[in-house]
């Protein structure tokens, strides 16, 4: 079981959250097709640390941004997203 640091509730079990994918900024609405293709389909897929979104559905019902290591599964730096989804 992963322990996820929620900025509002503290460290809570993974089972209270749902996964929201990597935190990736969307391009502006007037961006060209290539930029949208990159935004939709490209994946960083790092073997190491990455930022991602989790939704604390069985807790405070807020989106949180964390940094997670994709090999060790360590999760650190829980914080509120800049633009709440």
């Amino acid at each position: 079981m992963l322990i996820i640091p929620c900025p509002w509730c503290g460290e809570r079990d993974e089972s209270e959250f749902s996964y929201g994918g990597p935190a990736r900024p969307l391009p502006s609405l007037d961006a060209d097709a290539a930029a949208w293709r990159r935004a939709l389909y490209s994946c960083d897929n790092p073997m190491g640390w990455r930022e991602e979104l989790w939704f604390h559905g069985f807790g405070c019902r807020q989106w949180v941004v964390v940094r997670r290591h994709t090999v060790s599964q360590k999760i650190v730096d829980g914080r509120p997203p800049e633009n709440p989804s």
Partner: peptide
């Protein structure tokens, strides 16, 4: 497993 991972193991959940 619903989260991106390079670990060849998963959660007991």
């Amino acid at each position: 497993e619903p989260l991106a991972s390079y670990a060849q193991r998963g959660s007991v959940v």
